[in-house]
Design a protein around this nucleic acid. Structure first.
Length: 540
DNA sequence: GTAGGGTTAG
């Protein structure tokens, strides 16, 4: 009875009483309380109780059930140092290395929660015995740390090791497939889930729905959605996002109406999905309507909602309105938000505004590790013909060694995901890919295509600019796809940035010349290219 | 009496 109260985490008196009676506390009871605290709204109480025990002469002895709740509390609190100390304590304890699998599983999860992928994988690598939770924790860690290819490699190793995936494994692996656009791998996981009978569990079904939508099969996503007997906010939101991603904005907004009529309470992500639907069609009035109605659902706008609104206004050319919107919003704008407006200013030909915002906002100081700001600044200076300034930005970027990839494209062929960067020559088939692209360029030229050299904001000759454009990552991925897929197959390319003008024009023509259906998923929407046209109607 | 798990502005 009393312990049930502890699990609510609200009973301070009971906590004090438990601490006083510590000498009578055996390990079983102590672990029970630690577990209850770690799951409560105040997980730090678990850590405090453990520390208290540690200083007692008759303290309960830590056993194989003790570390998991502590590490889980440290993970929830994001206490990296506390978790590291627990790690050290665990290694020193008599529990290690025997009967430590569960504790080490929690340790993997702890490192992953603190965004420390390498230590998480190191713990996993050094484990003498791994169960399904160890594998799943490692796969989730990789998936969370933007290493979806690594996550899928781990998934394959797990299956090869004869460990059966469960629901949690499927969810983590499906998220990686969704990230990568790895449709055939996603389908394989769907089959596994069906065989094991958990494909209709709400969390798995939502992951499947999301995976199909992000892998270009919105039809299969809808099929799963329709088949769900109970649709919760996760399922509705994932479906609305999917429709928005595929530019079926009207249906996305209508689906939201259905959701509300069904009595399902939207959350802040549902609103984000709606705003994305409005943005992709440049529906300013609809966007404002969604934004102004948020409070009716008890939802306070957050930076992502402001971000969508600014993008909606700025991309539609309402630059001053977007800037005013940023100045009036009650939260501090971040680098992403300023970049959105600066980028839109540049593409709408207002490079002066772009430069003013950039310099005034000290963009590079806001987020010095994200290469996005450097690339954008370089582009703005390029558009103004300020080559020295552009060179200087580039120099700073190299000096600071910013980690993130500026642009890459991925394509799955025969169940394997291939990744390309601009000008990439690292792929084993690089030579064939470049030859293929030369052939494509020749056919494009016959059809009257000329490269959009004005898009290359570098101080160089047109010929060199054309060569730069030709080696954009999505073109390399496409050339690879054309070589390695059969003519009736639809090609899906996943890009981490927005589409560029030249690639967009080229994709349209290639879809006609080669008679292929090509899908490009960029940062914000799907482009379905077919017979010389794109579903986005050339607005993005 | 164990650990991990669905949608998320660019």
């Amino acid at each position: 009875m009393e312990l049930a109260a502890v699990s609510d985490g609200h009973s301070a008196q009971l906590h004090a009483k438990l601490i006083k009676t510590a000498p009578h506390f055996d390990s079983f009871l102590a672990n029970y309380v630690l577990r209850a605290y770690s799951k409560s709204p105040r997980p730090h109480r678990a850590l405090r109780l453990f520390l208290h025990h540690h200083s007692q002469p008759l303290a309960p002895i830590p056993d194989r059930f003790t570390f998991a709740p502590l590490l889980s509390a440290a993970a929830r609190l994001g206490c990296a140092d506390t978790g590291r100390q627990l790690h050290a304590l665990l290694l020193k304890s008599s529990l290690f290395p025997s009967s430590s699998t569960q504790s080490l599983n929690s340790l993997i999860h702890f490192y992953s929660s603190c965004r420390l992928l390498l230590p998480a994988l190191q713990v996993f690598d050094e484990m003498s015995e791994r169960d399904v939770v160890s594998w799943t924790s490692a796969i989730s860690a990789a998936a969370d740390a933007d290493s979806p290819r690594h996550a899928l490699r781990l998934f394959d190793s797990m299956v090869a090791d004869g460990i059966q995936p469960n629901e949690a494994t499927a969810v983590a692996a499906l998220r990686s497939c969704a990230d990568l656009g790895a449709l055939s791998t996603g389908r394989r996981i769907h089959r596994i889930a069906r065989v094991h009978g958990f494909s209709s569990k709400p969390n798995v079904a939502t992951s499947l729905l999301d995976m199909y939508a992000k892998c270009g099969r919105i039809d299969l996503a809808e099929e799963i959605f329709r088949g769900l007997p109970e649709k919760d906010v996760f399922a509705w939101t994932a479906m609305i996002f999917g429709l928005a991603y595929h530019e079926r904005s009207r249906e996305a907004l209508d689906l939201f109406q259905d959701m509300v009529e069904m009595g399902v309470q939207p959350d802040d992500r549902t609103i984000t999905a709606l705003l994305c639907a409005c943005r992709s069609k440049a529906w300013v009035a609809e966007g404002y309507r969604v934004y102004n109605n948020m409070h009716k659902f008890g939802i306070t706008p957050r930076i992502q909602h402001y971000g969508c609104m600014v993008d909606l206004l700025a991309r539609g050319g309402h630059l001053s309105e977007a800037e005013g919107f940023i100045r009036r919003m009650p939260v501090e704008p971040d680098a992403v938000l300023w970049r959105t407006l600066i980028w839109a200013s540049m593409i709408h030909g207002d490079s002066e505004r772009a430069e003013r915002l950039m310099e005034k906002r000290k963009l590079l100081e806001m987020d010095p590790v994200d290469s996005g700001s450097y690339v954008l600044m370089g582009n703005v200076f390029g558009s103004l013909g300020k080559w020295e300034k552009k060179a200087k930005v580039r120099e700073t970027m190299v000096k600071r060694r910013t980690g993130k990839l500026p642009g890459c494209s991925r394509i799955e062929v025969n169940g394997v995901v291939h990744e390309f960067e601009a000008g990439d020559s690292g792929h084993p088939e690089a030579e064939r890919i470049y030859e293929k692209w030369d052939e494509i360029v020749e056919r494009l030229r016959v059809e009257g295509y000329s490269p959009h050299v004005s898009e290359v904001l570098l101080d160089m000759e047109d010929e060199e600019k054309a060569s730069q454009l030709h080696h954009h990552s999505e073109k390399l991925a496409l050339a690879f796809g054309l070589i390695n897929t059969s003519p009736e197959e639809e090609i899906l390319i996943v890009k981490n940035l927005r589409s560029c003008q030249d690639c967009h024009s080229a994709m349209k023509l290639i879809s006609r010349i080669y008679g292929r259906k090509i899908m490009v998923r960029d940062r914000i929407k799907f482009h379905h290219f077919s017979n010389g046209c794109c579903s986005c109607g050339d607005f993005w």
